[in-house]
Amino acid sequence: MSDSRDELAAVPDVISGGGEDFSAFAVSRWPGLVRLAFGLTGDRWAAEDLAQATLARAYVAWRRVSRAHDPDAYLRRILVNTSNRRFRRHRVAEQPGDPPETAVDGHADLVGERASLLAALRQLPARQRAVVLLRYWEDLTDAQIAAALGCSPGTVRSQLSRALAKLRESPVLGEGDER
């Protein structure tokens, strides 16, 4: 009788609840969320939007988030879930993104390599992309990644294995890995 909605608690509870400071939490997590979201989406604007949506959901569930044993794990799960929902909705329209503008500055090879990495990431299914980012960017364990994705550690390992196999098909990555 209701939809996926949620992880969510009541906003009025949030406003009146506890002495935790959502503002400080949001400000401190924002850069990391944007970067992880960029890895997931490959698009700077979409990354900021995804990070905003993630923190908005954390705001609504703040009482629960602030009391969580590991609020960052909670946040990662919201981010990945939100990203997956968007991916399902917009997968037809997905296009490879651009590397960050700040990477240009005369480093053509570097920019080309990063564009290739982005393109390779974009070719992965959403869950595999998330596994790669959570492992190699966030340095999470199988169990932590499983918690973020809502799957078993075994699934994490199999998804990671498949993702790495696909990434190695990328000329740039394959070459780099052999260096």
């Binding site: 009788m1 209701s2 939809d3 996926s4 909605r5 949620d6 992880e7 969510l8 608690a9 009541a10 906003v11 949030v14 959502f22 503002s23 949001a26 400000v27 924002w30 850069p31 944007v34 970067r35 992880l36 960029f38 890895g39 700077r44 990354a47 900021e48 990070a51 905003q52 949506a53 923190l55 908005a56 959901r57 954390a58 705001y59 609504v60 590397p99 960050p100 700040t102 990477a103 990063r114 990495l117 982005l118 960017w137």
Partner: peptide, 28 residues
């Protein structure tokens, strides 16, 4: 790749407004 990203300041007001716009429904 990801450290090159320089996020703008956290748009706190927008985040809070979006949070409030989320309909409070229960978890299907």
């Amino acid at each position: 790749l990801l450290r090159e990203i320089e996020p703008p300041p956290a748009p706190l007001e927008t985040i809070v407004r979006r949070g409030r716009g989320i309909r409070l429904r229960r978890a299907g």
